[in-house]
Design a protein around this nucleic acid. Structure first.
Lengths: 258, 258
DNA sequence: GCCGGTCCTTGCGCCAAAGCAAGGACAGCG
DNA sequence: CGCTGTCCTTGCTTTGGCGCAAGGACCGGC
C-alpha cells in the first residue's frame, strides 16, 4: 500500500490530504448531490493508490475487500475464460466506481480490474462502505443509479451481440467510447483511451483480425484515422449510419447493368 | 385497472386484501428481511393486476410509471429491434421485481415485459416507491442486491455470447432456467416455464432453426426430452459437460483407423 | 542507433450457423 | 370433429467472419 502511495503522480499526490479528497468527491457527479455529512465520512474512509499500465487493481476470484473510485486514468473490467480468452465487460472512465460486486455474492470478485494507463484510484473497505450505506439512503440511491445505468448498458450490449453483425457492433462500441470519454482534437474526436485492436475486439465481441480489417476499411473510406492504440473519428454521422445498418450516404440503389 | 382486477384468478384474488399482500411480501426472499414498518408501507402501496399469456405489462418507450413484483406466473423482459427481431433480456421468476429502470433514466421504459403464462403482479407507483426508498435504507439495499445480481447475470451472458459457440450457449441457457425455476417431475427436471423454440433462441442468441436442431440432437442422445413448449432435462451432468465444452463422457480419444 | 517486444495488417481456406423453405404435428375453438 | 393458427422439424444453400500465419510498423530501452 505505502509503495503504491509513493508512486502517486505529482498532480494527485495531494489526495493524501483528506480535504483534497473531499473536494474531489464533491466535484464527482456520483457524489456531488450528497449531504456534506456523508462526504465527510467518505473522505475519511477512502484511501488513494496509484497503478501502472497493465497492473491488476482487482483480480478475479480473489476475496473482494474494497470498492474503488477511479480518480484519473482508465481501467478495464475484464473476465477471462478457461482457454485464456478475455472479455472486456466495462471500460471505467474517471469519476466512476468499480468493484461494486464486492458488496454481495460471497465476497469474491467476479472480474478483474486492470489499469490501461497510469491510474489513480480511491479505495474504501467493504465493511466501512456497508456501514455508510446503511446510514445514508442518499448514498445507497446514488449507487443504485450507477448500477442501473451499468445494467442498461450491459443489456444493450447483449441485444447488440444477438442482433447486430460485427461491423455494426464495432461501430457501436467506438461511438459509445466517443460519447462517454471522447475528446475533441484538431483532427477529429479521439475516443479518449489507449486501445489496442485486441481491446476493441474484446469490447465488441470479435477477433483481433476482424477488428483490424474493419478499422482499415473505415480508414480507407475516411470515416476514421488510426494510429497505434488510437482511434480518431472524422465522420461521426457516417459511423452512426454504419451502427444503424443504414446504407452509406454516397451509395445509390443498386440497378443491374442490363 | 379494475378490469384487470376482476380477472385475478381465484387463488390470488385475496391480494385485494392488504394483510394478504403483506403476508406475500414477508414470504418473498426480496422483502422478508425488511422491518415490519416497511412491510406495512409496501403492503399499502402495492396494487394487484392480472394478465393473460402474451399481454404486455410494460411496453418499451412508454412512460415508466410503476415498478412490479411478480406474484405468480412467468414474465419475459424483451427488447425489439427496428427490423422486428426480438431479444429476451431476462426471464422473471415469481417473487422477483421488474420494471426497475423506471426509477431513473427520464422515466421511459427501455424494454417490454410480457406475460408468458397467466400472471399475477403487484405494482407500485414510482414516486411512492422513491419516497419509501429514501426513508428505508434497508429497502434500498435490497434493491441494490437485486440489481447487482441481475448485472452479474447479464455480464455473464455477454461473456458467453462473446466466447461460447451456439450449442454451449443454449446449454447454459437451459441450465440457468433449471437452476432458477426448474421443477422436478417424474420424468426429469422441467425447466419450469412454457418456452417456444423461438424463445429459447432469443434467450441464447441464435435462431429458431438452430435451437430446434440442437434440441432435436439432444433428444436423440437422451440428454433431454421435449414436448411442445416444454423441455425436460434427463441428464443434467451431460448438459453441464456440453456447456463447458467438455467431450461427451461416452467418447474416447479419436484414433484414426489407419 | 540497434534490437526485442508489442502491436497492426492482410491474404487464404474453411466451417459453424444463418437464411430460406416446405412439410408436419399439435392445440384450441367453434 | 374438422379447421385454423401456432409451433416444430429438417433439408439445402450460402456466407460472415474466424483461425492461422507471415510480414511489417512502431516504440522504448540499452
Amino acid at each position: 500500500m505505502s509503495a503504491n502511495l509513493q508512486r502517486l503522480p505529482e498532480e494527485t499526490r495531494n489526495l493524501w490530504c483528506e480535504s483534497e479528497r473531499q473536494r474531489f468527491l464533491r466535484a464527482s457527479p456520483l457524489f456531488h448531490s450528497l449531504p456534506p455529512l456523508v462526504l465527510d465520512d467518505l473522505a475519511v474512509a477512502f484511501r488513494p493508490t496509484a497503478w501502472q499500465r497493465g497492473e491488476f487493481i482487482v483480480r478475479e476470484a480473489d476475496p473482494a475487500q474494497n470498492v474503488y473510485v477511479l480518480v484519473e486514468g482508465r481501467v478495464k473490467f475484464i473476465q477471462e475464460t478457461d482457454d485464456g480468452r478475455e472479455v472486456i465487460l466495462h471500460l471505467i472512465p474517471s469519476g466512476e466506481i468499480f468493484g461494486v460486486e464486492g458488496l454481495w455474492a460471497g465476497k469474491t470478485c467476479r472480474a478483474s480490474a486492470v489499469a490501461m494507463d497510469r491510474a489513480t484510484v480511491l479505495g474504501i473497505a467493504v465493511p466501512t462502505l456497508m456501514a455508510l450505506l446503511a446510514r445514508h439512503p442518499s448514498l445507497t440511491l446514488a449507487f443504485l443509479q450507477v448500477l442501473g445505468r451499468r445494467l442498461r448498458d450491459t443489456e444493450a450490449r447483449v441485444r447488440d451481440l444477438q442482433t447486430e453483425q460485427v461491423e455494426g457492433r464495432i461501430a457501436r462500441a467506438v461511438l459509445r467510447l466517443v460519447h462517454r470519454m471522447g475528446r475533441k482534437t484538431s483532427e477529429g474526436i479521439d475516443v479518449g483511451v489507449r486501445l489496442t485492436r485486441q481491446d476493441l475486439a474484446e469490447l465488441s465481441g470479435t477477433t483481433l483480425s476482424t477488428a483490424s480489417r474493419t478499422l482499415s476499411a473505415w480508414s480507407r473510406d475516411g470515416v476514421i484515422r488510426t494510429r497505434r492504440e488510437q482511434i480518431i473519428v472524422l465522420d461521426p454521422h457516417r459511423l452512426a449510419a454504419i451502427a444503424e445498418n443504414l446504407p452509406p450516404p454516397g451509395s445509390r440503389p443498386h440497378v443491374p447493368a442490363e
